[in-house]
């Protein structure tokens, strides 16, 4: 299904999740092709302690390099970047990351909306945004921004989400391009690879 719609190239896949989102990633990451032709950015609502266990956990499930972002890191193709705890993650026009410790958005820092909107601004129609399980409204505005800039928007199929509220919220408010369960999500991301 997905392959037909992917004539254009993809530079970045940004994945956001809250409650139950991590479980999805732990299933998706091991199934991805090890050499990617794009960059993956992961934003998860997480506890605001500055430990690196989440980075280690994700890295243990894939041979793709995983890095928790430091200020002004350059986005490299074939890497997975993780938003650090307690910072908003933004992307600059020169394809570097900026961190921001401003007010929480949707009670969250990092906020999915902030990263989605910033990525949409820089990557336009070469961006794919995926919203996973969660019990928050975060991510809906971000997906709308991605859609507006011509990117592809995907929500996890709510019936398959541990917390269906967040993807359902996006589906109700944004004309998302695809609603996918986990196996279809894996095929979709792999099909983006050149």
């Amino acid at each position: 299904m997905a392959e037909n719609s992917l004539k254009r190239s993809c530079d970045v896949v940004v994945i956001g999740g809250s409650t139950g989102g991590l479980d999805v990633l732990l299933k998706v990451l091991p199934a991805l092709k090890p050499t990617l032709s794009f960059t993956i950015i992961v934003v998860l609502h997480r506890k605001n302690s500055a430990d690196s266990t989440l980075e280690a956990l994700l890295a243990s499930r894939t041979s793709i390099p995983v890095r928790e972002v430091e200020d002004k890191d350059v986005l490299a193709v074939g890497h997975i970047y993780l938003a650090p705890a307690d910072y908003h993650l933004l992307i600059e026009a020169d394809k570097t990351f900026s961190l921001d410790y401003s007010e929480k958005v949707n009670y969250s820092r990092p906020s999915l909306d902030v990263t989605f909107e910033s990525a949409a601004d820089v990557y336009g129609d070469t961006l794919v945004g995926i919203l996973l399980s969660g019990a928050n409204t975060d991510g809906t505005k971000g997906l709308a921004a991605i859609k507006k800039e011509g990117g592809i928007t995907i929500a996890q199929k709510p019936e398959t989400a541990q917390a269906p509220f967040m993807p359902q919220q996006a589906i109700d408010n944004v004309a998302v391009d695809f609603i996918l369960d986990i196996p279809d999500m894996i095929s979709f991301i792999n099909a983006l690879n050149n």
Binding site: H88, L90, E92, S98, D100, S118
Partner: peptide
């Protein structure tokens, strides 16, 4: 200033 953050503000 970091442009993305400034623009958002």
């Amino acid at each position: 200033y970091s442009r993305a953050s400034l623009k958002r503000r």
